[in-house]
Design a protein around this nucleic acid. Sequence first.
DNA 1: TGCCAGGCGGGGT
DNA 2: ACCCCGCATGGC
Length: 319
Amino acid sequence: MNPTQLALCDEGDFGKQDLDYRLIGAVYNLCFWTSSREFYVYIPGDGINLALVDHHGKFKIYSDSCRGSSELRSRLRFTLGLDEDLSGFYSHARSDTIIGDFVEEYRGWRLRSTDLWWALVTAICQQNASFKQGWRILHNIVKAYDKHVLVNGALIPRPPTPSEVLSDPEKLLLAGAGYRARTILAVAKELARGSLSHERIEAMDAVEAERELMSIKGVGHYTARLSIALAMRKYELPPIDRWLRKIVSVAYGVDEKFVEEFWRKRWGKWSALAAIVTTVALDAEPLGKALERVRRRELLPKVEINPSPINMEGFCKPT
DNA sequence: TGCCAGGCGGGGT
DNA sequence: ACCCCGCATGGC
């Protein structure tokens, strides 16, 4: 299969301000799409649109069609979270027991978003899996489908589309998805036949969107909420898994049964972002180690841990 | 080697 | 409204 050739469509400079593009590009990004001075990010929407962004905020947008080029730039801003005003979140988070240190130190970070399809696949891969296993599966899925775009002579991997996954579902198992494959396929089917779409979910509020996504078998609260956060930048519904539930319960002395209530009351419209930040601050270490980190107040990411959310290079290396 | 991990649904009470 | 179990897979 030939790679899709992309042409330069737009370029410019977003400016540095207080943003840390290195972090924006690195956090929870697979190794195909990051390097030491720049990163790639796919822009959700029609066609294939890929941006190359350097650590000073200079960007190039490559496209297969270059339709709506003026709009692409603002969609890229959204994808990078450049206009997300986190001051309310940070002013509150600064004094937080768990993520206080992180938000002081990593103030220039923003969450990158993805399209709904890839957000769902990402979230499904995390089901009943450690950080390492979940992201390894996702990495393996990209490799298994072996799809690329051609940009300036460089072959850049891209995620398979729902139809590509439907036409070769076996590759999900090859990638180690296990029983998660069934859920990924269910999502792919709905997206392919149009009963589910990024745009439709985007138009809903978080509660409606969650209900809609949960109508797909295999998509529960966690998967729906993480997807809504990653794809829509709507954070009011926190994806609370066993890991976060236990950590919050220990760190704040809240009964596990009331963690969700506690968390939503504490973080309000930032609940999902606070949950994601917690995983980054603790390097998404397995529960036992993460609890130990909280106990010892080691609440900043450790550069030597690889793979970790801030450095997923390790997944590209043979184990 | 088992055991189990950032879920989930189905089937019990 | 709960509790409990099985489930594919791979890491430890």
